[in-house]
Write a protein that binds this DNA or RNA. Structure first.
Lengths: 236, 236
DNA sequence: ATGCCTCACTCGTCTGACAAGTTTGATCCC
DNA sequence: GGGATCAAACTTGTCAGACGAGTGAGGCAT
């Protein structure tokens, strides 16, 4: 272990260190969600100064490979799926991005739900209802659940009759429900029954308000649902 | 010159500096091939230590925006000029599109204003204030007014600290303020003094709520402003 | 058992210093 | 004058030490 850095490549020690760490991550030696060695460890292992280590980690950060938290350390993010998943998949990576996305969805979707309640047609309501049933029926795999969740939110947006809302949600795709790999496992798979019933209840509240043509209730219900989702993630 | 860095964004000084420099490059203030200010200059201009400056430049390097040579300096590379949001610049043509757009903006911008009130930094508030002044000063042509109006709304979104809001507004551009040609003359140019003062007042209300850190008031003020704009168009 | 609090650990920033590469300009020689 | 030479100034690269700020674990009192 711990081969010292080659000091004669002409591109700088920080560059060398970045390459080493990148290789480790891409090779899976440090898996997504795991912690990068501390700065002190890297200083010892590679025999360089803290300046170099910090610059290297800083570049990994800029490259979207790790996310750093003061007082805790740097954590490896999901490896950019080389299969060209979607361009947008690279947009939500860090923990902060997820929280920001939920704040964004609060603004967009609560108003969309309100408009949906006020302007929906019977047909649109039926579509929302179908999505809700798909979501609550215990039929599918976890992957299917994300898909169904997204479809419910999309149908609500469609019921608003405003193409800007529905187009925006459609452009996000199911990705908007997805969560970062870092501590996702910890918070989402631990979804005990309590979690699921609570989320289901929140969805039903949104649906009922739309069915009742109660705009204010629909806005509140959707805001509550998303704010709760955000809270469920923020302090695991 | 040289506005000092905002030390309260919670993402670190280096991050702030990166954003500043990135903005300069993207805005074309430093053209491809030109030299970035030296580290010493940046230290002086932004009042930070060399550590921060070096990390920032290092990140620009990782992002592929600059290339650095020992003993010479950092030079700006070609600009990719890509926007995060791929929301197509959907044309707003029909009268209904305009109303839908305003309904959409109600959802997006009222929440953005609320978040801005709750999370803004002093620097962001100053930016909003400047935009407001530009808007109220009777200096410019009508075209300039649209531009200034847009800038105000964008600065509010930026003050939310959530890139999804600001990216979305930025992707729309001043176009989102524009109105259909059909009855534009009728509704906007006939804008007697009453109209203008009323709109100005609405903007000021938004600003004041953000300054007071009153999230609920900011949401209400922005919603009112956009709802009024909608009403001013709906039944002229 | 619970809640609070201290303390060690980690990252964020600052300061000062020296090494290594580049540019500039004065100097010297022709 | 023109060209080669070289020292000094400037720029980036690296090192070392220090302190502040946020986090988390373990101990302590209740």
């Amino acid at each position: 272990m711990s081969v010292p850095l080659d000091r004669n490549t002409g591109r700088g020690l920080a560059y060398e260190l970045v390459e080493r760490l990148k290789a480790r991550i891409l090779a899976g030696e440090i898996r997504p969600g795991e912690k990068l060695p501390t700065e002190s460890s890297l200083i010892e292992e590679f025999g360089v100064s803290r300046t170099v280590v910090r610059e290297a980690v800083s570049q990994l950060q800029a490259a979207g490979l790790v996310e750093t938290f003061q007082g805790r350390g740097s954590f490896v993010l999901a490896v950019p799926a080389s299969t060209a998943f979607t361009v947008e998949a690279t947009q939500i990576r860090t923990h902060r991005d997820v929280l920001d996305m939920l704040d964004f969805r609060i603004g967009v979707e609560s108003e969309a739900a309100g408009l949906a309640a006020e302007r929906r047609t019977e047909l649109q309501l039926k579509a929302v209802e179908r999505a809700l049933v798909d979501l609550t029926s215990p039929g599918g795999q976890p992957g299917n659940a994300v898909e169904a969740d997204f479809r419910f939110h999309l149908k609500v947006a469609l019921a608003s009759g405003n193409r800007f809302y529905s187009d925006l949600l459609a452009s996000f795709g199911p990705m908007m429900i997805m969560l970062p790999r870092t501590r996702l496992e910890h918070t989402y798979t631990v979804s005990d029954a309590t979690h699921l019933t609570r989320v289901t209840l929140e969805h039903e509240n949104v649906y009922r308000a739309i069915a009742d043509r109660d705009g204010a209730a629909a806005r509140a219900a959707m805001r509550l649902h998303l704010a709760n989702s955000r809270a469920r993630l923020q302090a695991p």
